[in-house]
């Protein structure tokens, strides 16, 4: 899964704009491109909560200890750990 991430990264035409959700700064918005870890519980949960390809997400803030993070999607607020956000590949909105 990680290797597939890397190839995708490598193939991206604008590497600066494609990153993973955990790397965004508070207030930044992005569009979900791809979620790795197909079949896992996390994958399923992300989909059910409305995080899937083409959906806009925005980082609201990080917890005081740096983890987890608060993300807004479809008008509702989700909390996820950075390790989990790492499996969500996004394209940063300008």
């Amino acid at each position: 899964m990680h290797s597939s991430n890397r190839t995708r990264d490598g193939r991206g035409h604008a590497p600066a704009r494609t990153t993973t959700l955990d790397k965004l700064a508070p207030g930044q918005r992005a569009v979900v491109q791809h979620i790795s870890g197909v079949g896992s519980l996390l994958y399923q949960r992300l989909l059910e909560m409305g995080v899937f390809e083409g959906v806009e997400v925005a980082v609201v803030c990080f917890a005081p200890l740096g983890d987890p993070m608060e993300v807004r999607v479809h008008g509702s607020h989700l909390c996820m750990r950075r390790a989990e956000a790492r499996s969500v590949q996004v394209e940063v909105c300008a």
Binding site: L78, C79, M80
Partner: peptide, 10 residues
Amino acid sequence: ETPPFLMELP
């Protein structure tokens, strides 16, 4: 397996 900490903040 570590359960996802994916939780809605109502």
